[in-house]
Simulated assay, not measured.
Amino acid sequence: MAEILRMDSDDPADVEQIWTTFVPSASVLRIDPADFAFRWRSITFSDLSIVRYSLTAEVHSRVQPEDQLFACRLVTEDGVLRSRRSIIDPGAPWATDSAQVEAEWNGTAEVSALIFDRMRAQDLARRITGDDLLSLRLTSVHPRSDAAARQWVRAFDYLMTSAMAAEGDELIEAGLARHALTVVLSCFPSTFSSAIARDGGGDGAATVRRALAFIDENAHRPITVDDVAEAVHISTRGLQYSFRRSIDATPTEYLRRVRLDGAHRDLRNGAAGDSVSQIARRWGFGNSSRFNSLYRQTYGRSAKETLEGD
């Protein structure tokens, strides 16, 4: 179950307390209580914390994760960010799983962060690549390019909004956690990059048939494409390649199709009191407008018309 935390504080002691709860390696070297304001919003799943906060003060802080993968963006008019090897561009996202990063600012800073358990992130990266020996490490604190930096910013906004709307839906949470890690590992150089470049292998029709059967039987559960790949003993990349060759669709597209069919059945046979949004969420569709658009494209009528028997 997701945990949502909201805090508005005028006590400087709250800053380090909450920082170290989410990032044990974080420390506040200096904080001036004059003109202080702290506003924190976060949502935590089993594999991921999504954080957005603002802090007004004169601050000197440091982070050096040991058991976490930490991706962050700090926006302030008067501040400096640096690792031991380089200066980090103001307003640019950065990431670390071991490198020390220090931040200093005087005024207001707006901070966005994605925080992963490092071993769980490595397990997920291994499933995606099919490389059971992958040792996941970031190789730079800087994004690959300006385009990658912009991608991270857009993805964070999407993740924060979607996570707050998920309301404990395991299907949506699992998908968001996978998407968040994929975004970070796509935007920042890491050992994941070379592993994903290798073919995951496996393109037999038998593998695809087993995958289709697994999806058909489990689409109502909070499964992801990684779970499908693991169930049929192939890498996620290999599964995607096999699907494209065999049925000219991706595993994600097929899983969505099966879930739409399930929602369609429930709408036609809806019990009294069922709503379109409840049925959509039951099948992993957290965005009602997106669900309604997909439903109309697929079935030629609105979900509400189907539920009401029009």
Score class of each variant (00 low, 15 high):
G168H: 01
M160K: 01
Q151F: 06
R137S: 00
V141S: 04
W105F: 15
V153R: 06
R126T: 12
A166F: 06
D131A: 06
R137H: 11
T129E: 03
D131L: 03
L134Y: 11
L138K: 01
A125N: 03
A103T: 08
G168L: 09
R144A: 08
F116K: 07
A125G: 09
S135D: 09
G130F: 07
A121C: 09
E167W: 05
D117Q: 12
A113L: 05
A165R: 05
R127C: 08
L124W: 10
A148E: 09
R144P: 02
R144G: 12
M164D: 08
D132V: 13
Y158V: 04
A149I: 15
G130T: 11
I115G: 12
D157G: 03
I128H: 03
S135W: 00
G168N: 12
E167R: 06
Q122P: 08
F156M: 03
R150S: 13
A166C: 13
A113Q: 14
E110K: 04
D131V: 10
L171G: 02
L171A: 08
E110T: 10
F116R: 10
R118H: 04
L124F: 11
E104D: 14
R127L: 13
D169K: 07
D157T: 02
M164G: 04
A125H: 09
A155H: 12
M160R: 09
D146K: 10
Y158Q: 02
A125D: 05
D123T: 04
A103Q: 13
V141N: 04
A155W: 14
I115W: 07
D123H: 02
T161I: 02
P143E: 03
H142S: 14
P143D: 04
L133W: 15
L133A: 14
M119C: 05
A165M: 02
A165Y: 00
A149R: 11
A125P: 15
Y158L: 04
T129W: 07
A155R: 15
T161L: 08
S135G: 01
R137A: 00
A166W: 00
A125Y: 06
A147S: 15
E170V: 02
E104Y: 14
R150Y: 11
G107L: 14
R120H: 10
P143C: 06
F116M: 08
R127F: 13
A147C: 06
D157V: 00
A149K: 14
D132L: 13
D169R: 12
W105K: 08
F156N: 07
L171F: 04
A147M: 11
S140Y: 01
Q151M: 03
W152T: 09
T129K: 08
A125M: 10
N106G: 13
F116Q: 13
L134W: 10
R118D: 03
A148G: 10
L136R: 01
W152F: 15
V141I: 14
R120S: 15
Y158P: 01
M164H: 07
A166Q: 11
T129R: 02
E170C: 07
M164K: 01
R118P: 02
D123W: 02
W105D: 11
I128T: 07
T129A: 01
A149D: 14
E167F: 05
S140G: 06
V141T: 13
T139Q: 12
T139I: 12
E170P: 12
Q122T: 01
L136S: 11
F116P: 06
R126I: 07
H142N: 15
Q151A: 00
I172F: 02
Y158D: 07
R154L: 05
Y158N: 05
